[in-house]
Protein backbone atom coordinates (compact mmCIF):
# COMPACT_ATOMS: atom_id res chain seq x y z
CA UNK A 1 0.00 0.00 0.00
CA UNK A 2 1.61 3.21 -1.13
CA UNK A 3 0.27 5.34 1.66
CA UNK A 4 2.39 7.28 4.12
CA UNK A 5 2.12 10.05 6.63
CA UNK A 6 3.93 13.01 5.09
CA UNK A 7 6.12 15.65 6.67
CA UNK A 8 6.96 18.22 4.00
CA UNK A 9 9.09 20.65 6.00
CA UNK A 10 9.27 24.43 5.97
CA UNK A 11 11.21 24.95 2.75
CA UNK A 12 8.76 23.09 0.52
CA UNK A 13 6.77 26.23 -0.24
CA UNK A 14 9.77 28.47 -0.71
CA UNK A 15 13.23 27.40 -1.78
CA UNK A 16 12.07 23.80 -2.09
CA UNK A 17 9.16 24.58 -4.37
CA UNK A 18 10.45 22.63 -7.39
CA UNK A 19 10.86 19.59 -5.14
CA UNK A 20 7.25 19.95 -4.00
CA UNK A 21 5.97 20.34 -7.53
CA UNK A 22 7.75 17.27 -8.82
CA UNK A 23 6.79 15.19 -5.78
CA UNK A 24 3.13 16.07 -6.30
CA UNK A 25 3.30 15.16 -9.97
CA UNK A 26 5.05 11.90 -9.23
CA UNK A 27 2.71 10.95 -6.40
CA UNK A 28 -0.31 11.52 -8.61
CA UNK A 29 1.17 9.47 -11.40
CA UNK A 30 2.03 6.41 -9.35
CA UNK A 31 -0.83 6.51 -6.86
CA UNK A 32 1.37 7.40 -3.91
CA UNK A 33 -0.78 8.78 -1.10
CA UNK A 34 1.13 11.29 0.98
CA UNK A 35 -1.06 12.31 3.89
CA UNK A 36 0.29 15.55 5.30
CA UNK A 37 0.56 15.56 9.10
CA UNK A 38 -2.10 18.05 10.19
CA UNK A 39 -0.82 21.33 11.62
CA UNK A 40 2.80 20.18 11.61
CA UNK A 41 5.48 22.49 13.03
CA UNK A 42 9.07 23.14 12.05
CA UNK A 43 11.44 20.27 12.83
CA UNK A 44 14.11 22.64 14.12
CA UNK A 45 16.62 21.76 11.38
CA UNK A 46 20.22 22.47 12.42
CA UNK A 47 19.42 25.59 14.43
CA UNK A 48 17.43 23.88 17.17
CA UNK A 49 20.10 21.40 18.15
CA UNK A 50 22.68 24.18 18.09
CA UNK A 51 20.60 26.03 20.67
CA UNK A 52 19.65 23.23 23.03
CA UNK A 53 19.10 19.49 23.36
CA UNK A 54 15.49 19.60 24.54
CA UNK A 55 14.42 22.26 22.08
CA UNK A 56 15.79 20.02 19.34
CA UNK A 57 13.78 17.05 20.57
CA UNK A 58 10.56 18.87 21.42
CA UNK A 59 9.94 20.25 17.96
CA UNK A 60 9.99 16.97 16.04
CA UNK A 61 8.31 15.13 18.94
CA UNK A 62 5.12 17.15 18.53
CA UNK A 63 4.94 16.12 14.89
CA UNK A 64 5.45 12.45 15.78
CA UNK A 65 2.66 12.71 18.35
CA UNK A 66 0.23 14.24 15.87
CA UNK A 67 1.03 11.59 13.28
CA UNK A 68 0.49 8.83 15.84
CA UNK A 69 -2.87 10.24 16.81
CA UNK A 70 -4.28 11.38 13.47
CA UNK A 71 -2.54 9.01 11.05
CA UNK A 72 -2.08 5.87 13.13
CA UNK A 73 -0.26 2.91 11.71
CA UNK A 74 1.41 4.87 8.91
CA UNK A 75 5.13 5.27 8.51
CA UNK A 76 6.32 8.83 7.91
CA UNK A 77 7.77 9.91 4.58
CA UNK A 78 10.16 12.89 4.84
CA UNK A 79 11.49 14.39 1.60
CA UNK A 80 13.95 16.84 3.21
CA UNK A 81 17.13 15.30 4.59
CA UNK A 82 17.42 17.72 7.52
CA UNK A 83 13.82 17.12 8.61
CA UNK A 84 14.44 13.40 8.19
CA UNK A 85 17.49 13.57 10.44
CA UNK A 86 15.59 15.48 13.14
CA UNK A 87 12.53 13.23 13.14
CA UNK A 88 14.80 10.19 13.16
CA UNK A 89 16.89 11.56 16.04
CA UNK A 90 13.77 12.24 18.10
CA UNK A 91 12.42 8.79 17.29
CA UNK A 92 15.68 7.16 18.37
CA UNK A 93 15.89 9.17 21.60
CA UNK A 94 12.28 8.40 22.54
CA UNK A 95 12.63 4.70 21.79
CA UNK A 96 15.94 4.38 23.58
CA UNK A 97 14.95 5.67 27.01
CA UNK A 98 11.68 5.84 28.91
CA UNK A 99 13.18 8.66 30.94
CA UNK A 100 13.81 10.72 27.82
CA UNK A 101 10.34 10.04 26.52
CA UNK A 102 8.78 11.06 29.83
CA UNK A 103 10.70 14.32 29.88
CA UNK A 104 9.79 15.10 26.29
CA UNK A 105 6.13 14.42 27.03
CA UNK A 106 6.35 16.70 30.01
CA UNK A 107 7.96 19.51 28.03
CA UNK A 108 5.76 19.20 24.99
CA UNK A 109 2.49 18.30 26.65
CA UNK A 110 1.83 15.49 24.17
CA UNK A 111 2.08 11.73 24.45
CA UNK A 112 4.39 10.11 21.96
CA UNK A 113 5.54 6.53 21.42
CA UNK A 114 7.60 6.98 18.23
CA UNK A 115 6.47 3.67 16.79
CA UNK A 116 6.35 4.85 13.18
CA UNK A 117 9.35 4.31 10.92
CA UNK A 118 10.89 7.47 9.49
CA UNK A 119 11.66 7.13 5.78
CA UNK A 120 13.21 9.35 3.15
CA UNK A 121 11.39 9.69 -0.13
CA UNK A 122 14.15 7.54 -1.66
CA UNK A 123 13.36 4.81 0.87
CA UNK A 124 9.68 4.93 -0.13
CA UNK A 125 10.32 4.81 -3.86
CA UNK A 126 12.96 2.15 -3.30
CA UNK A 127 10.51 -0.34 -1.82
CA UNK A 128 9.43 -3.12 -4.14
CA UNK A 129 6.02 -1.54 -4.50
CA UNK A 130 7.25 2.01 -4.95
CA UNK A 131 9.92 1.00 -7.43
CA UNK A 132 7.53 -1.09 -9.50
CA UNK A 133 5.02 1.74 -9.56
CA UNK A 134 7.65 4.18 -10.79
CA UNK A 135 8.91 1.77 -13.42
CA UNK A 136 5.39 1.27 -14.73
CA UNK A 137 4.72 5.00 -14.97
CA UNK A 138 7.78 5.92 -17.05
CA UNK A 139 6.75 7.04 -20.52
CA UNK A 140 9.96 8.34 -21.99
CA UNK A 141 13.66 8.05 -21.26
CA UNK A 142 16.33 10.66 -20.65
CA UNK A 143 18.82 8.49 -22.46
CA UNK A 144 22.33 9.82 -22.82
CA UNK A 145 22.30 12.18 -19.85
CA UNK A 146 25.14 11.47 -17.45
CA UNK A 147 24.30 12.39 -13.87
CA UNK A 148 26.04 12.30 -10.52
CA UNK A 149 23.71 11.30 -7.70
CA UNK A 150 24.40 13.50 -4.67
CA UNK A 151 23.06 12.24 -1.37
CA UNK A 152 24.35 14.88 1.00
CA UNK A 153 25.30 13.93 4.52
CA UNK A 154 22.07 13.49 6.47
CA UNK A 155 20.43 10.72 4.47
CA UNK A 156 23.17 8.30 5.49
CA UNK A 157 24.77 9.72 8.66
CA UNK A 158 25.06 9.20 11.54
CA UNK A 159 25.17 5.54 10.64
CA UNK A 160 24.22 4.50 14.15
CA UNK A 161 20.77 6.07 13.65
CA UNK A 162 20.13 5.76 9.93
CA UNK A 163 21.27 2.16 9.73
CA UNK A 164 22.80 2.78 6.30
CA UNK A 165 25.57 0.30 5.65
CA UNK A 166 27.64 2.08 3.05
CA UNK A 167 27.99 5.72 4.04
CA UNK A 168 30.64 6.41 1.40
CA UNK A 169 28.93 5.17 -1.69
CA UNK A 170 25.22 4.35 -1.30
CA UNK A 171 23.30 3.27 -4.38
CA UNK A 172 19.64 3.80 -3.64
CA UNK A 173 19.25 7.02 -5.61
CA UNK A 174 21.05 5.57 -8.62
CA UNK A 175 18.72 2.59 -8.58
CA UNK A 176 15.62 4.79 -8.58
CA UNK A 177 16.72 7.57 -10.86
CA UNK A 178 18.01 5.13 -13.48
CA UNK A 179 14.38 4.40 -14.20
CA UNK A 180 14.26 7.75 -15.95
CA UNK A 181 16.88 6.53 -18.41
CA UNK A 182 19.80 8.65 -17.20
CA UNK A 183 23.25 7.15 -16.84
CA UNK A 184 24.54 7.45 -13.29
CA UNK A 185 28.30 7.99 -13.13
CA UNK A 186 30.44 6.58 -10.36
CA UNK A 187 31.95 9.42 -8.37
CA UNK A 188 33.47 10.07 -4.97
CA UNK A 189 31.62 12.93 -3.33
CA UNK A 190 28.21 11.31 -3.01
CA UNK A 191 27.88 11.94 0.71
CA UNK A 192 30.22 14.88 1.30
CA UNK A 193 28.42 17.72 3.06
CA UNK A 194 27.17 20.74 1.05
CA UNK A 195 27.60 23.03 4.05
CA UNK A 196 23.94 23.26 5.02
CA UNK A 197 22.93 26.61 6.48
CA UNK A 198 26.60 27.69 6.60
CA UNK A 199 26.19 28.80 3.00
CA UNK A 200 24.25 31.67 4.56
CA UNK A 201 25.93 32.28 7.90
CA UNK A 202 29.54 31.33 7.05
CA UNK A 203 29.72 31.72 3.28
CA UNK A 204 33.48 32.17 2.90
CA UNK A 205 34.09 28.93 4.77
CA UNK A 206 31.26 27.03 3.14
CA UNK A 207 31.55 27.86 -0.57
CA UNK A 208 34.57 25.57 -1.12
CA UNK A 209 32.39 22.61 -0.11
CA UNK A 210 30.07 23.23 -3.02
CA UNK A 211 32.97 23.84 -5.42
CA UNK A 212 34.50 20.51 -4.41
CA UNK A 213 31.30 18.69 -5.21
CA UNK A 214 31.07 20.22 -8.67
CA UNK A 215 34.75 19.52 -9.24
CA UNK A 216 34.52 15.81 -8.60
CA UNK A 217 31.22 15.46 -10.45
CA UNK A 218 32.74 17.10 -13.51
CA UNK A 219 35.94 15.04 -13.23
CA UNK A 220 33.82 11.92 -13.41
CA UNK A 221 31.95 13.01 -16.49
CA UNK A 222 28.68 14.19 -14.96
CA UNK A 223 26.55 16.58 -17.02
CA UNK A 224 24.12 17.16 -14.17
CA UNK A 225 23.86 16.57 -10.45
CA UNK A 226 20.81 14.95 -8.88
CA UNK A 227 19.80 15.70 -5.29
CA UNK A 228 17.27 14.45 -2.73
CA UNK A 229 17.01 17.38 -0.36
CA UNK A 230 15.82 20.98 -0.75
CA UNK A 231 18.85 22.38 1.14
CA UNK A 232 21.40 20.46 -0.92
CA UNK A 233 19.59 21.43 -4.09
CA UNK A 234 19.49 25.11 -3.13
CA UNK A 235 23.14 25.20 -2.12
CA UNK A 236 24.35 23.65 -5.35
CA UNK A 237 21.90 25.37 -7.67
CA UNK A 238 22.11 28.83 -6.13
CA UNK A 239 25.87 29.03 -5.70
CA UNK A 240 27.13 27.57 -8.95
CA UNK A 241 27.41 30.81 -10.87
CA UNK A 242 28.98 32.64 -7.94
CA UNK A 243 31.60 29.92 -7.65
CA UNK A 244 32.35 30.13 -11.35
CA UNK A 245 32.76 33.91 -11.01
CA UNK A 246 34.74 34.03 -7.82
CA UNK A 247 36.83 30.87 -8.08
CA UNK A 248 37.54 30.99 -11.79
CA UNK A 249 35.87 27.69 -12.58
CA UNK A 250 33.60 26.94 -15.52
CA UNK A 251 31.10 24.42 -14.24
CA UNK A 252 28.12 23.91 -16.49
CA UNK A 253 26.22 21.43 -14.39
CA UNK A 254 22.51 21.97 -13.75
CA UNK A 255 21.11 20.51 -10.55
CA UNK A 256 17.88 18.52 -10.45
CA UNK A 257 15.88 16.94 -7.69
CA UNK A 258 15.60 13.25 -8.37
CA UNK A 259 11.83 13.58 -8.41
CA UNK A 260 12.07 16.13 -11.20
CA UNK A 261 13.87 13.66 -13.46
CA UNK A 262 11.40 10.93 -12.62
CA UNK A 263 8.46 13.24 -13.21
CA UNK A 264 9.82 14.35 -16.59
CA UNK A 265 10.33 10.71 -17.53
CA UNK A 266 6.72 10.13 -16.56
CA UNK A 267 5.61 12.84 -18.96
CA UNK A 268 5.82 16.05 -16.93
CA UNK A 269 6.55 19.26 -18.80
CA UNK A 270 9.34 21.63 -17.80
CA UNK A 271 6.82 23.96 -16.25
CA UNK A 272 5.16 21.24 -14.26
CA UNK A 273 8.40 20.53 -12.44
CA UNK A 274 9.39 24.18 -12.14
CA UNK A 275 12.55 24.06 -14.27
CA UNK A 276 12.33 27.78 -14.91
CA UNK A 277 12.64 28.45 -11.19
CA UNK A 278 16.17 27.06 -10.99
CA UNK A 279 18.99 29.50 -10.38
CA UNK A 280 21.31 27.70 -12.72
CA UNK A 281 19.62 27.21 -16.08
CA UNK A 282 18.21 23.71 -16.08
CA UNK A 283 15.89 23.59 -19.05
CA UNK A 284 18.30 23.22 -21.96
CA UNK A 285 20.07 20.12 -20.73
CA UNK A 286 16.88 18.12 -20.30
CA UNK A 287 15.40 19.48 -23.47
CA UNK A 288 18.45 18.51 -25.53
CA UNK A 289 18.55 15.08 -23.91
CA UNK A 290 14.94 14.42 -24.79
CA UNK A 291 15.41 15.62 -28.33
CA UNK A 292 18.50 13.49 -28.86
CA UNK A 293 16.77 10.48 -27.41
CA UNK A 294 13.95 11.15 -29.80
CA UNK A 295 11.50 11.07 -26.97
CA UNK A 296 10.39 14.66 -26.85
CA UNK A 297 6.73 14.85 -27.68
Amino acid sequence: MLRYAYYPGCSMDTTGVTYRMSIEYLARKIGLELMEIPDWNCCGASSAHAKGKWQALALPARNLAIAEKRLPGLDICVPCAACYARLLAATAAIRESDETRARIEEITGVTVKAGAEILTLMDVLGTDEGFAACAAAVERKLTGLKVACYYGCLTSRPRAITGVQNIESPELMEKIVSLSGVECVDWDFKTECCGGSHQVDAPAAARPLVERIFRNAKANGAQAIVTACPMCHLNLDMREEEINRKMGTAYDIPVYQFTQLLAVAMGASAKEVGLQKHFYPAFKRLDRTLRKAGTLQ
Partner: peptide
Protein backbone atom coordinates in the same frame (compact mmCIF):
# COMPACT_ATOMS: atom_id res chain seq x y z
CA UNK B 1 4.51 25.44 20.10
CA UNK B 2 5.59 28.65 21.85
CA UNK B 3 4.86 27.20 25.28
CA UNK B 4 6.62 24.00 24.34
CA UNK B 5 9.74 25.84 23.22
CA UNK B 6 9.75 28.02 26.30
CA UNK B 7 9.58 24.93 28.50
CA UNK B 8 12.33 23.29 26.47
CA UNK B 9 14.53 26.38 26.77
CA UNK B 10 14.17 26.26 30.52
CA UNK B 11 15.07 22.61 30.56
CA UNK B 12 18.12 23.33 28.41
Amino acid sequence: VRRMLTAAEKED
